[in-house]
């Protein structure tokens, strides 16, 4: 075996990695926020909407879960272009990732809502709350609490999957690594470096979700029950 690693030429381009990591993080945060909102709404639509809406949400979920992310990204990219919209690669990437993670979030949140005992909903209704208020005040947080580990895993997975958007030249981490390895001919070193960046980003995200969990679920914080 004759392995000689030379990180020097790779690491001297560190500002590019930092820029790439920043864009990856931005993509992840945007898609997490909008994807969660989209998914939670679709979960409600699928459970309590009129038949046409429930059907539409179901079709969306199945379409996304049964096609590759890369194909979805190309569909958004070329689809919007042929409709005459010229959006930046970053915008298209954020949009495609949001649509993708929204579908998975729909199913996770649906499981969360379904896990809340019927009596909770009845108690809310009998106090005079409207269906919307029952979802907002009674069901949302307990449902999220129950599926929080699944949700956060999904969002970390989304951040990792954002590497695929390098295919439409979004300047995120993997695209940076692609560029640097072709520039320096140090492919292994480039991808090792980028893998370490992804590990760090995952760690940052999990830390963020842990903190967010403390904010969202004060009962856990006060009673000391772990998530």
């Amino acid at each position: 075996m004759n392995l000689r690693l030379d990180f020097g030429v790779v690491w001297e381009r560190w500002p590019l990695f930092v820029d790439g990591a920043w864009m990856t993080l931005q993509l992840a945060v945007l898609a997490t926020l909008f994807g969660f909102a989209l998914g939670a709404l679709c979960a409600v639509g699928r459970r309590s909407g009129p038949p046409w809406l429930a059907g539409l949400c179901g079709a969306y979920v199945e379409a996304i879960r049964n096609t590759p992310l890369l194909v979805q990204i190309f569909l958004v990219y070329f689809g919007l272009a042929s409709l005459g919209f010229s959006l930046s690669a970053f915008t298209v990437a954020a949009l495609a990732l949001t649509i993708n993670v929204g579908a998975y979030t729909t199913e996770i949140m649906r499981a969360g809502f379904d896990s809340i005992p019927r009596g909770q909903l009845e108690a809310g209704e009998c106090l005079g709350l409207s269906q919307r208020q029952v979802y907002w005040h009674v069901l949302l947080l307990p449902a999220m609490e129950r599926v929080y580990p699944a949700l956060t895993s999904q969002f970390v997975l989304l951040m990792l999957a954002s590497s695929v958007t390098s295919q439409i030249s979004a300047e995120e981490l993997t695209a940076v690594a692609n560029y640097i390895q072709s520039d320096t001919y140090r492919a292994f070193e480039s991808y090792i470096t980028v893998a370490v960046f992804y590990l760090a980003l995952s760690f940052v995200m999990r830390l963020g979700f842990w903190g967010l969990g403390l904010l969202l679920f004060p009962r856990r914080r006060r009673l000391g029950t772990p998530l």
């Binding site: 909770q120 106090l127 005079g128 005040h137 009962r219």
Partner: peptide, 27 residues
């Protein structure tokens, strides 16, 4: 009409005070 159930059905994520205040405030 007020109703009380066998399984209490208090909202687990809210304190007792929040449980009681929810409907007067929102409804």
């Amino acid at each position: 009409v007020g109703i009380v159930f066998q399984s209490y059905n208090l909202f687990p994520h809210l304190t007792i005070e929040e449980n009681i205040c929810l409907a007067p405030v929102t409804v």
